[in-house]
C-alpha cells in the first residue's frame, strides 16, 4: 500500500521549520518516519503536508554529557541510544528500552524525537523517559521552552507540543546508582507490545529512596504509577511490599483492549512486570 499525495517541505533551519509549521496548519513534521509512514501507507492517517526535519542543520543527531546531564538530540536514532556507552552506564533503562524497539532496521531509522512526538502510549521510550524524569526541549516560533516529561503526554496521540513547535532535545539526569529496568511482553517483534514497564528505583541500604514506575500500553498515554511510587518510599523491597506495589500500580488502570490482550490481561501483565522488575533489584 502506498500513501496519499502530500506537499513536502524540507527546511534547513529550525527557524524556517517553525515558520512553515506556523503557516501550514496541516503540516506534520517527519523525523525517522517509522511510525508515521506505515500509517500513511495504510491510509489511516494522511497529512496533506509533510515537513522533513532531515536537513535542519541544528538537528543533527547527538548524545552528549554535560556534568550530570545527558543530552540527546531529537534526531538520535533508537540504535544510537541503545548502543551509547554513556547512556548504558548512566541511564540503562533508556538504553534497554531503545534496544527493544521493533527490529534493527526500525531502530536504525527511527528517532527518539519522532517516537515521543507521536504521543503513542505503546512506545518504549516514552516509559523510559518517564521513569527517568526527562525534560524535553522544544523550539517554536516564540523561542525555546522546556517541558517536563510528566506534563508532556495529554491524551492518545496528543502531546503538550503546540503546533509549530518541534522537539529538539531530551535531557536526563545521569543516575548510575539507581536500579533500572525495562521489561516488555510482545507476541513477536512485528506485533505491538502487550505491555511494558520502565522502573527507576533509588535504594539506600535496602530502603527505597525514590521510585519512578512508568507503564506502557496502560492507558491513553504513557503513565506513571504515582501511588505505587509513593507507597514504596522508605520501604524495604521484600516480596510483600513488591506484590502490594504492583497491586496498587495496576488497580485503577484502564488499559486498552484489542485483539492481542484485554484490559484485564494487560493489567495482569503490567502487575507481573512490575513485580519481576522490582524483585530483580533485590537478591
Amino acid at each position: 500500500m502506498r500513501p496519499r499525495p502530500f506537499d513536502f517541505y524540507q527546511p534547513t533551519s529550525i527557524k524556517e521549520a517553525s515558520e512553515i509549521l506556523h503557516s501550514h496548519e496541516d503540516a506534520k513534521p517527519l523525523a525517522g518516519g517509522q511510525s508515521l509512514i506505515p500509517m500513511m501507507k495504510l491510509r489511516i492517517f494522511s497529512p496533506s503536508e509533510i515537513m522533513s526535519l532531515a536537513k535542519i542543520k541544528e538537528m543533527k543527531p547527538y548524545i552528549s554529557e554535560t556534568g550530570q546531564i545527558l543530552k540527546i538530540g531529537a534526531m538520535a536514532t533508537h540504535d544510537m541510544i541503545h548502543r551509547s556507552d554513556v547512556l548504558r552506564n548512566a541511564v540503562p533503562v533508556l538504553s534497554e528500552a531503545a534496544g527493544e524497539i521493533a527490529d534493527q532496521q526500525i531502530r536504525n531509522r527511527g528517532t527518539i524525537g519522532g517516537n515521543i512526538a507521536h504521543g503513542d502510549p505503546s512506545t518504549n521510550l516514552s516509559a523510559a523517559l518517564l521513569a527517568l524524569d526527562a525534560e524535553i526541549e522544544v523550539q517554536g516560533i516564540e523561542g525555546t521552552r522546556i517541558i517536563p516529561i510528566d506534563e508532556f503526554f495529554l491524551d492518545l496521540f496528543t502531546t503538550a507540543l503546540d503546533h509549530g513547535e518541534i522537539i529538539t532535545e531530551f535531557r536526563v539526569k545521569a543516575s548510575p546508582h539507581t536500579k533500572q529496568k525495562f521489561m516488555k511482553v510482545a507476541k513477536s517483534d512485528t506485533a505491538f507490545p502487550m505491555a511494558f514497564v520502565a522502573l527507576n528505583v533509588g535504594l539506600s541500604e535496602g530502603f527505597v529512596e525514590n521510585a519512578r514506575i512508568a507503564l506502557g500500553v496502560a492507558g491513553p498515554t504513557p503513565l506513571r504509577a504515582l501511588e505505587a511510587e509513593k507507597f514504596l518510599l522508605k520501604k524495604r523491597l521484600d516480596s510483600e511490599v513488591i506484590t502490594k506495589a504492583a497491586q496498587i500500580a495496576t488497580k485503577d488502570l484502564e488499559p486498552p483492549s484489542d485483539v492481542h490482550a484485554s484490559e484485564e490481561y494487560r493489567k495482569q501483565l503490567l502487575s507481573t512486570l512490575i513485580k519481576r522488575g522490582l524483585s530483580s533489584f533485590v537478591g
Partner: peptide, 28 residues
Amino acid sequence: LSENLVYDDDGILLSSNFWDYNVIGAKQ
C-alpha cells in the same frame, strides 16, 4: 501459537496486517 484471523461480531476482520496477524519470526 500465533496466527489467527479474528473477526468481531459484525464480521470485521481485526487481524488484517502483520501488526495484528503475527507470523513468527526468528526469535520465536
